[in-house]
Computed example of a mutant assay.
Amino acid sequence: MRILLIEDEKELAEALSAALGKHGIVTDHTAHLADAVELTRQNLYDAILLDRRLPDGEGLRFIPELRRTGETPIIVLTARNEPKERVEGLDLGADDYLGKPFLVEELMARLRAVLRRPPNLAELKITAGRMVIDPLHLSVTVDDAPLDLPRRELLVLAALAKRKEKTVLRATLEAAVYNYEEEIQSNALDAHISRLRRRLAEAGAEVSIHNIRGVGYLLREE
């Protein structure tokens, strides 16, 4: 899962990005609405976390522009949490409204809730071969037995399985694993794929990952 965090409190943004990362979420962060709009033009996000008081404006006023390419769920995270302010946020298009301070566990529950709504049903469990992937809870099972995978390998696997039998571009896979600020080593993706192949074969998942030279990778059911 990849989300956009629009938050001008640097320490909070860093802490929240790190906490979400433990749940397998790749977070792009910006403190400015203008940059956020540009990021939504360049990337597809599963959800947007939006503060209200930002250096270049009121976050709620940008909801239509942030969402212009689809129905991306937007959760407002703000200290402005009076009933009237919550009503205002929901009326202006937010899918959910969470007052600061909050627990990461509650935010995760709210993310799972908004992602279960149409048109995000594709984010529910993915089946391929003998395995089932749950992207929202960051888990994989093979014949109901848990398969323990490092977070980044699991993100690569979920991106491939969601598009099984189709070629997935390298850039798409990298975007599923790394945020735009991270430096990606040239062979990092290939290393993830190599380890995944071995783990899946050992688990008897009955899927295989094929290299489409110069383009990307494809997951096929055996």
Score class of each variant (00 low, 15 high):
R152I: 03
Y180V: 02
R195K: 11
H210C: 05
E202G: 00
E181M: 12
V156N: 11
H210K: 13
K166L: 11
R198M: 06
E174L: 14
H210F: 04
V207E: 06
R151C: 10
K166S: 09
L200P: 04
S186W: 05
V207Q: 01
R170G: 04
H192M: 06
T167C: 13
A175N: 13
R170N: 14
R163N: 12
T167H: 06
A171M: 08
E202L: 07
E206W: 00
P150S: 07
E182H: 01
Y180L: 04
N211L: 14
E174G: 10
R152F: 04
N211H: 12
E206Y: 02
S194L: 10
G214K: 04
Q185W: 02
L169E: 13
K162D: 08
E183D: 13
H192Y: 13
V215D: 04
N179A: 05
R151I: 15
A201D: 12
E183H: 09
R195E: 12
S194C: 06
V215Y: 01
V207P: 01
A205G: 07
Y180Q: 08
T172L: 10
E153M: 11
K162E: 14
E202A: 09
N187Q: 12
A159F: 00
N187S: 07
I209K: 02
A191C: 05
V177N: 10
D190C: 00
V177M: 11
L173K: 11
L160A: 13
A188Q: 15
V177C: 11
L173E: 09
H192P: 04
L154S: 09
Q185C: 01
A203L: 08
S186Q: 14
N179R: 06
V215E: 06
I184E: 08
L154F: 05
I193Q: 12
R151T: 15
K166I: 02
A161M: 08
V168M: 07
L200I: 15
E206N: 09
Y180C: 08
N179T: 01
P150K: 11
V215C: 02
R197M: 07
N187W: 05
E182W: 00
A176T: 05
E181N: 08
L200F: 04
H192S: 05
S194Q: 14
V177K: 12
V168I: 10
G216Q: 06
Y178K: 00
A203T: 14
S208W: 00
D190S: 13
S208G: 12
Y180P: 01
S186T: 09
G216K: 04
L189K: 10
R199H: 11
R198L: 08
K166V: 04
R163G: 00
L155W: 02
R213P: 00
E206I: 02
A171I: 09
E165Q: 12
V168W: 03
A175I: 02
E202K: 08
